[in-house]
Nucleic acid binder design. Sequence first.
DNA 1: TTTTTATACATAAGATTATTATGTATAATT
DNA 2: AATTATACATAATAATCTTATGTATAAAAA
Lengths: 117, 117
Amino acid sequence: MYNCPMHSKQLLKGTLQTIILKLLSEHKRMYGYEITQQVKLLSEGKISLTEGALYPALHKLEAEGLLISEKVYIGKRVRKYYSLTQTGSNTVTTKLKEFSDFVSTMQAVLNLEPKLK
Amino acid sequence: MYNCPMHSKQLLKGTLQTIILKLLSEHKRMYGYEITQQVKLLSEGKISLTEGALYPALHKLEAEGLLISEKVYIGKRVRKYYSLTQTGSNTVTTKLKEFSDFVSTMQAVLNLEPKLK
DNA sequence: TTTTTATACATAAGATTATTATGTATAATT
DNA sequence: AATTATACATAATAATCTTATGTATAAAAA
């Protein structure tokens, strides 16, 4: 799912849903390819989502009722836009909290200082 | 591997090696059960390593030359102490750096503030 | 104008990692 | 005497990701 020029591929596992949901909470609707580009931009090229991970993840989130999709034709090409459902919208907050807790806990276990700005 | 009372099980994937190596860099030698207890302590009960993940991980790290083990008998019971090899010792720094980079990148992607102390 | 790159979706085989369950056994506590 | 804690280990299953493959249109470069 990730093609990360750093060496922390393992660490990125489990973050894909959080990333997708958070981006959609800021953009109303996005399509798959757009998400990959946005992630690449925000991570300064450090994270490249692979299609083999992204599309199944989007399908799963839709099946679970967190996202809904709509197909839009751009000329002859299909785009599948995804947006948050109400459930999905509520889940974003939970996911972000979980990520923060995770970081805090790991910093405690690894005896690391939280970073200052 | 983790039995986390929070809901962030997915997020913890890929962190086990880093945790093991970092703890061993601070303790000279530790045995499996001791590692589980130390992690529970440092995480304030939020992370409980399961044996099904811990022991295979220790075996793998040893097979890769990052750890060496020695069996010690406490009465009739065996303890298997693990300690860092030189390679393992070098790897700790790399792993911690990777974790920091991962957190920074994720904070950028998720548009989160780094935490202040 | 032809070739390459970018856009845009999707699935499938295989690998990795973790969960859950199971197994064995000693030591300490209730 | 029974339960809990200590201490190791492995195996079946599940979840997630990588890598490879497939299809197709649009744009840019050679």
